[in-house]
């Protein structure tokens, strides 16, 4: 799975992009988020922030959206363009 982090979140995590292999039992956005937060430290704080938005394959996702190793998942703060 390809993971992307943008803006303030990328800076907090010190990482813009990574590839991961999902462990058994991680099949939804909520489970992916919890798994990444379990890395602890800044990951736990940044990913448990309720304002974080998540997109799966470039479409906005919800906690129930399914994820597989073939997906691109992006984490980012509320948008501020225009």
């Amino acid at each position: 799975m390809k993971l992307l982090y943008f803006a303030r979140l990328r800076e907090r995590l010190g990482l813009g992009e990574e590839s991961v292999e999902l462990p058994p039992g991680v099949a939804s956005v909520a489970q992916l988020r919890a798994w990444l937060a379990s890395r602890g430290g800044e990951w736990a704080d940044a990913l448990q922030d309720r304002s974080v938005r998540i997109a799966v394959n470039q479409d906005m996702a919800t906690a129930d959206t399914p994820v597989t190793d073939a997906d691109e998942v992006a984490f980012f703060p509320p948008v501020t363009g225009g």
């Binding site: 943008f6 803006a7 303030r8 800076e11 304002s51 997109a55 906005m60 992006a74 980012f76 703060p77 509320p78 948008v79 501020t80 363009g81 225009g82």
Partner: peptide, 23 residues
Amino acid sequence: LKTQAPFWKREQTPTGARWVDAR
């Protein structure tokens, strides 16, 4: 566009750089 398109602004102020908060 302001609320859905993924863009993020970071601005330079006299006290340093900061990410703009959504309104």
